[in-house]
């Protein structure tokens, strides 16, 4: 499988990262390179730490060891002011969308613009409408978040994530819980927005088909490290049993179907309640 050419223009470098939640080791010597201007999918089973990786890139968490560099800046060593300056160049779409529930659609998208710029209202209006036009929700600008469907909520969150034209947009499980039409819309939008605005996108997902359909490059995480990487075509044709199990959605394999337990027969003849 090909690896990202480290000499090529990369936006994010993750080097030798180790991280634990209490006794549970999430990452062990993790190395990744996210190319600039591309859509990179980070896939892996639930609980393998995909979203944690986005929190590292955004500086909301610090790794125990190693370094994360975004645009050649070491994120863990930034002070608060510099971190916030870097975040202005990032957009993030959360799994829950994280729209501000007391603001309507228009106000949600205008929120980061008003917070970080002193643009006149007329210009802000035009900016917001252009983003809404991009996601097809210009007509829904007066609706409150509670009045939106799941797919519309994600589209508004996407429009808000790109409100300041960031260099990087991170998507945390953008395909989860969507109906087929909304799913198709989000898949199309992520690709189109990335290409139209010439930004870099990192999509964290466990949806293999959708992830592979838009990604230029795929990383597969498992057991705290990268267990597979390559273009979607390379990932589909791999012989690695771990990658094949995930890509094919096989219930048993290197990731066992059964949670570790003692012998079944032993369990059946054990006095109940057991110790």
């Amino acid at each position: 499988m090909s690896q990202v050419d480290k000499s090529q223009d990369s936006l994010i470098q993750i080097r030798d990262v180790g991280f634990s939640f209490g006794d549970h080791k999430i990452y062990d010597h993790l190395d990744m390179t996210i190319p600039r201007g591309k859509v990179t999918a980070i896939m892996g089973p639930s609980g393998c730490g995909k979203s944690t990786l986005l929190n590292f890139i955004g500086g909301r968490l610090k790794p125990d060891t190693g370094d994360i560099r975004v645009n050649d800046v070491s994120v863990p060593s930034l002070n608060r002011r510099d971190l916030y300056a870097l975040r202005k160049q990032m957009g993030m779409m959360f799994q829950s969308s994280a729209l501000l529930t007391d603001l309507n659609v228009f106000e949600n998208i205008a929120f980061p613009i008003y917070e970080h710029t002193e643009l006149p209202d007329e210009l802000v209006k035009n900016l917001v409408l252009s983003k809404l036009q991009m996601v097809g929700l210009r007509g829904a600008r007066h609706l409150m978040p509670a009045e939106l469907s799941g797919g519309m909520t994600r589209r508004v969150a996407l429009a808000r994530a790109i409100a300041l034209d960031p260099m990087l947009v991170m998507y945390d499980e953008p395909f989860t819980g969507l109906d087929p039409i909304s799913l198709g819309v989000i898949v199309k939008l992520i690709r189109e927005v990335n290409d139209a605005l010439q930004m870099t996108s990192v999509v964290v997902t466990h949806d293999v088909a959708e992830g592979c359909s838009i990604a230029d490059y795929v990383y597969l995480l498992g057991q705290g490290r990268v267990i597979g990487q390559g273009t979607p075509e390379e990932m589909s044709g791999t012989k690695s049993p771990e990658v094949r199990q995930f890509m094919g959605g096989l219930p048993d394999g290197p990731v066992a179907y059964h949670y570790p337990a003692r012998d079944y027969k032993e369990d059946l003849f054990q006095d109940w309640p057991d110790d």
Partner: peptide
């Protein structure tokens, strides 16, 4: 509830300090 629905995290990622805002 703002915390539970990631609204505070969303603000942080928009470089808006939730303590201040």
């Amino acid at each position: 509830l703002m915390k539970a629905t990631s609204q505070l995290a969303g603000m942080e990622m928009m470089a808006v300090d939730p303590i201040e805002r």
